[in-house]
Design a protein around this nucleic acid. Structure first.
Lengths: 218, 218
DNA sequence: ACCTGAACACCGTTCAAGT
DNA sequence: ACCTGAACACCGTTCAAGT
């Protein structure tokens, strides 16, 4: 009957979706759980530890054992490592977008757990098996995670959070013709394509550096 | 003799370097300024507006009119847009690394000012002049800023802040051979090279997509 | 115009004491 | 083991009143 640690984290994630990171308060959480403010500290050492556990929970699904790459047709086109990294990037973006302020939570508070580390290790091993050196696999993996987090951070900073600035809302259109054209194309194509296009730069860049020997797209 | 808005922002940036973002408090700031807590709100509408102005100040130098690209020899090798974007990325990283929690501050609170927007517009126009389409220039620019912010976020999350987790500190070495090897290579080469290598993937990827016609490296 | 004094409605966290 | 009650040392923000 008593509360358990996982219940606390689950409730905190629900609360996050409702009020956003800035208003995610220990007291609001304990009120939602129906206990006194101090009760939280029986289950969790500090608010920071709580946030770290939440971040790990958000990110974990993206590192789960990947099914076969969804998009790329097998046996043709891009090499296996490229399709696999792109699929991972899309899973990570999906996981971050799945929760309010997901990217901010993860970027500020993630302390990678054993499961995450294991998945990273497996990913590196897999890429080595496909002909990438440890350095190449490491650079690509690090670059992709950096790109995804940075991208979703910008993606989410406009909408959820607390709406502290659309940025380009209501400014003189005549002064920024290129910026406006780019934004219009973005909106027209659904916006998600910019993510895919940027991601493709990373994999295409490594493929180009490797040359056609390792399975370049052309 | 009276305090001005810019003094407040400058003092806040100094305080940030001393105590970090988490302990950057309005009361600590007013104490440092030698005024009462409420005095702050004569110069600034809210703490959030203050943080936004700080973020803009941190990022502004990176968008300043670029001198000739420092690294790439002119007239040979990579095309002009590639050298210019890489130089911008290094400037942005330098600006973020220049202040404690710089990446976190910018990623969470930046509301781009007119100067920043103008610089972005100019960058897009410049790239168009070099043969890139608006979409290509936009994708590249967005990808690069995402990459830089995500990279420096990870870079700074270990050290400054409040040290809430080195992540891979003190875990079983035998279980993560590839991860360890990658980390060792990182440390051996100074670490900054991973940034340059990942960045090169982005520019090389676009160059490969363009083909040799627009000035590919080979 | 710029700042003080004093207050308001909150925070995260601790810890004896209860059950 | 798990939680309450009550407190401590803070927060960001407002606003009359002073100069």
């Amino acid at each position: 009957m008593a509360l358990h640690r996982d219940d606390v984290i689950a409730a905190a994630l629900e609360l996050l979706d409702e009020v956003g990171l800035e208003r995610l308060t220990t007291r609001a959480l304990t009120e939602r759980l129906g206990v006194a403010p101090g009760a939280l500290y029986w289950h969790v050492r500090s608010k920071r530890e709580l946030l770290g556990a939440m971040a790990d929970a958000v990110v974990a699904p993206a590192f789960a054992p990947a099914a076969a790459p969804a998009s790329a047709a097998p046996g043709e086109g891009a090499p296996g490592w490229a399709g696999r990294t792109e699929a991972f990037a899309h899973r990570l973006r999906g996981a971050l977008l799945g929760r309010r302020d997901g990217a901010r939570l993860v970027s500020a508070h993630l302390a990678p757990g054993a499961a995450t580390l294991g998945a990273v290790e497996d990913g590196l091993a897999l890429m080595r098996g496909e002909g990438l050196s440890p350095a190449q696999a490491g650079v690509l993996g690090h670059a992709v995670t950096s790109y995804v987090i940075g991208f979703v951070l910008q993606e989410q900073s406009g909408q959820g959070g607390d709406g502290h600035g659309g940025g380009t809302a209501g400014f003189d259109p005549a002064r920024y013709p290129n910026l406006l054209q780019w934004q219009a194309e973005q909106a027209g194509q659904g916006g998600g394509d910019a993510f895919t296009a940027g991601l493709a730069l990373l994999t295409a860049g490594l493929a180009a550096q490797l040359g056609p020997g390792v399975g370049n797209a052309r």
